[in-house]
C-alpha cells in the first residue's frame, strides 16, 4: 500500500514536471508565432511588386524599398566574403594545427567574448577603424568589414564544431596513406566538414542581415535613391531603414504600413536564409553515413 502511494506521488511529480516542460516549449513557440503573425498581418497590405522594386519617394512616405533590399544584400554578401574564409582558416588552425594548450584556450575565450560584444560596439569600432582611420568613409566596404567581424565568432564556432565532427579515423586513414597533413585537411577534412560549416555560417548571415547598429555608423545612408556603383558608395539597409522610418522621420505615423512592410521583407529574408541552412543540413545529413 505504501509502495503504491509513493508511486502515485512519483507519477504526479512526473506529470507536473512534464507539464512545465511542455508549457515552456509552447510559450516559446507562441511568442515566435505571435510575433510573426503580427508582422505578417500588418505588413502584408503594402507588399507589392512596386514596393519591392521601386525606391522610396515623397520623403520616404511612399514608394518602395528596393535600394534598402539591395543594400542589405550587398552588405551581407560582403560580410560573408570577409568572414567565411577568415573564419574557416581560423577554425582549421584551432582544431587541426594548434597544440591544445593555454594559447589556444585564450584564443577560444577571445572568440567567445567577441561573440558576446554588443553590436553597437562593433559599429563604433568599424567607424573608428574603417571609416575614419583607414578613410574608407561610410560605404559598403566599411559596413561589410564591420559585419564580417561581427559574425566571425559565429562562423569560427560553427566551423570548429563541424571540423571536430569529422571522424578522426578519416584523418588517420589519409595520413597512413602517406598523404600530408595539409592535403588531408583540404581533401578529406574540409569537404566532410563543409555542410556543417555552411549551416553555421548561413545562420551568421541571418544575423548580419538584421543588424542595425553596426551598419548605421559604417555604411547605411538615411536616404539615397541612387544605387551604389562601387564598394565605396553608401547604401540603404533594411534594418536601418526601419529604424529611420520609425524614429527619425517627420511622418512616423503615416509611414507605419511601410515600416511593417519593410520589417516583413527583412524577417522574410532572414527566415528564408535560415530555411536554406535547414534544407542544406537535412540533405547533407541524409547523405552522410558514418
Amino acid at each position: 500500500m505504501a509502495l503504491q502511494t509513493s508511486m502515485r506521488w512519483r507519477y504526479f511529480k512526473e506529470g507536473v514536471f512534464f507539464g512545465l516542460v511542455r508549457l515552456s516549449a509552447f510559450l516559446l513557440t507562441a511568442a515566435l508565432g505571435g510575433l510573426l503573425l503580427y508582422i505578417f498581418v500588418n505588413g502584408l497590405g503594402v507588399l507589392s511588386w512596386d514596393f519591392l522594386t521601386l525606391p522610396p519617394t515623397d520623403s520616404m512616405t511612399k514608394g518602395g524599398i528596393m535600394p534598402a533590399i539591395l543594400g542589405t544584400l550587398y552588405l551581407t554578401t560582403g560580410a560573408i566574403l570577409v568572414a567565411l574564409p577568415l573564419g574557416i582558416v581560423s577554425a582549421v588552425y584551432l582544431t587541426e594545427y594548434a597544440k591544445q594548450g593555454p594559447l589556444v584556450r585564450v584564443i577560444r575565450v577571445g572568440v567567445n567574448c567577441l561573440a558576446g560584444v554588443p553590436s553597437i560596439v562593433f559599429g563604433l569600432f568599424g567607424l573608428g577603424l574603417f571609416v575614419v582611420f583607414l578613410q574608407f568613409g561610410s560605404c559598403i566596404l566599411s559596413g561589410a568589414l564591420t559585419l564580417g567581424i561581427l559574425i566571425l565568432p559565429t562562423i569560427i564556432g560553427a566551423s570548429e564544431e563541424a571540423l571536430k565532427a569529422v571522424p578522426q579515423t578519416f584523418r588517420e586513414a589519409s595520413l597512413a596513406l602517406g598523404v600530408s597533413k595539409w592535403q588531408t585537411i583540404v581533401r578529406i577534412v574540409l569537404p566532410n566538414a563543409l555542410p556543417g560549416i555552411l549551416t553555421g555560417s548561413i545562420l551568421g548571415i541571418g544575423r548580419a542581415a538584421g543588424e542595425t547598429a553596426p551598419v548605421m555608423f559604417t555604411a547605411a545612408a538615411f536616404y539615397t535613391a541612387k544605387l551604389p556603383s562601387s564598394i565605396f558608395d553608401e547604401v540603404m539597409a533594411l534594418p536601418f531603414h526601419i529604424y529611420v522610418l520609425a524614429t527619425a522621420g517627420t511622418h512616423i505615423e503615416a509611414t507605419r504600413p511601410i515600416q511593417f512592410g519593410t520589417i516583413l521583407v527583412l524577417v522574410g529574408l532572414v527566415l528564408g536564409v535560415d530555411l536554406i541552412a535547414i534544407v542544406i543540413r537535412s540533405t547533407m545529413r541524409k547523405r552522410k553515413r558514418w
Binding site: 588517420e172 597512413a176 602517406g178 558514418w290
Partner: peptide
C-alpha cells in the same frame, strides 16, 4: 609522410572515405 608511403596501415575499424 615518406615513411607512411612505404609502410602502410590497416585499422581496427574499417575506415573507407565517404
Amino acid at each position: 609522410v615518406e615513411v607512411r608511403r612505404r609502410i602502410g596501415m590497416v585499422f581496427q575499424k574499417p575506415n573507407p572515405f565517404p
